[in-house]
Each structure stands twice: as structure tokens, then as C-alpha cells.
């Protein structure tokens, strides 16, 4: 799929056409078992391209793989990585692994709540930043506590002040994202 449909909050027919073409090229199950194995991968592809999984895309995947859209929504609501609403301009993964906790990531989460009014999965009122709190571990523990912006830029050894400064810096720029994490 070509780039350029990043962080759109609505879905256009052209996007869906591209998705359809991609599904037909790369998601060709040989039997119904394989079709079911491909559902999560197809959803991850959509999120990678759109930044979220719109209902229309879920329907396209359901039709293509021969499963119900209800089942797809069952998956979207179970797996924490999926978003069913468009993310903000920038995306932040906040590592809340044990090393980051020991280093003070809880303070950063409180700061998000108190200063930005957002929690897990939330988007700031100005639409600039969406946060996902990683319950697992980003595996960059010697820089704990750490955040990752837009799936590439890490900022580590944070305290509340440097955290705010990092958010200010990233949100001051327009989005330059081309994709959205896992594919």
C-alpha cells in the first residue's frame, strides 16, 4: 500500500480500494484455517497504515477472509494494541515496565492525568498527542523511564520536567509519520 493516508480521521474510498488491493495480493489464504490465522495480521496492517482500525476496513477484512465483522470487533476490543478511534497527530508509547516503574514512570502517568487530562489510550484535547501506556516492556531498560514517540524516537532517563519538555518539543512540530508501528 502506498504511504500517505496517515492520521486521517475519516476513510475515503481510495484508501479502501488500496486496502482491498493489498489484501488480494498479500492475504491469500489457501483454506479457511489459514484465513482465520490471517485476521490479526490484516488488522495490524490496517493499523500500521491508518493508525487505527476504521469500521469500514474491518468490514473489508471480514468480507475478504470470510469471517463476521462481529468477530473482528471481538478481537479489536480484546487486544490492547488496536485502536478503533483515530489517534492524534503524534503518538507516544510510555513504557510502564518494572524497570521504568522503579525509575518513576508512575509520576509521568500522574503528570499525564493531571496536566494533560489523558490516560491509557487517550488523546489530548488539541488532538496533538495520543498516549499508549505499555504494560509490557520496551526493552530499553538502561534508559528507564523511557517513552517512544511516533514509533522511532526514544527519549529516556525522564523526570517530570524533561518529560514535559519532550512532549512540548514533539508536539511543536507537525506530524512526519509515515506509518504506525507494528505491521
Amino acid at each position: 500500500m502506498t504511504r500517505g493516508m496517515a492520521h486521517k480521521s475519516t476513510v475515503e474510498q481510495a484508501d479502501l480500494d488500496r486496502l482491498q488491493a493489498h489484501l488480494e495480493e498479500h492475504f491469500q489464504p489457501r483454506d479457511h484455517e489459514e484465513a482465520q490465522e490471517l485476521i490479526l495480521g490484516a488488522l495490524q496492517h490496517v493499523q500500521h497504515e491508518f493508525g487505527w482500525v476504521p469500521l469500514e476496513a474491518s468490514q473489508a477484512i471480514a468480507d475478504h477472509l470470510g469471517v463476521s465483522v462481529n468477530r473482528i470487533y471481538g478481537l479489536l476490543t480484546f487486544y490492547a494494541d488496536f485502536r478503533t478511534e483515530p489517534p492524534g497527530e503524534h503518538f507516544m508509547l510510555l513504557c510502564h515496565g518494572a524497570a521504568c516503574f522503579v525509575g518513576g514512570s508512575q509520576k509521568l502517568i500522574h503528570e499525564l492525568r493531571d496536566n494533560y487530562g489523558i490516560g491509557q489510550g487517550g488523546t489530548t484535547a488539541d488532538g496533538k498527542l495520543t498516549v499508549q501506556i505499555v504494560n509490557g516492556c520496551l526493552g530499553v531498560c538502561d534508559l528507564a523511564p523511557i517513552v517512544q514517540f511516533d514509533h522511532e524516537k526514544y527519549v529516556g532517563n525522564l523526570d517530570v520536567d524533561s518529560f514535559n519538555a519532550a512532549i512540548e518539543e514533539i508536539t511543536a512540530n507537525g506530524s512526519q509519520r509515515e506509518d504506525h508501528g507494528a505491521d
Partner: peptide, 8 residues
């Protein structure tokens, strides 16, 4: 190869 969706 399959990838997970963030569910421990």
C-alpha cells in the same frame, strides 16, 4: 510468523 496484539 504471527505477531501478537499486546495481550500478556
Amino acid at each position: 510468523l504471527l505477531t501478537g496484539g499486546g495481550a500478556y
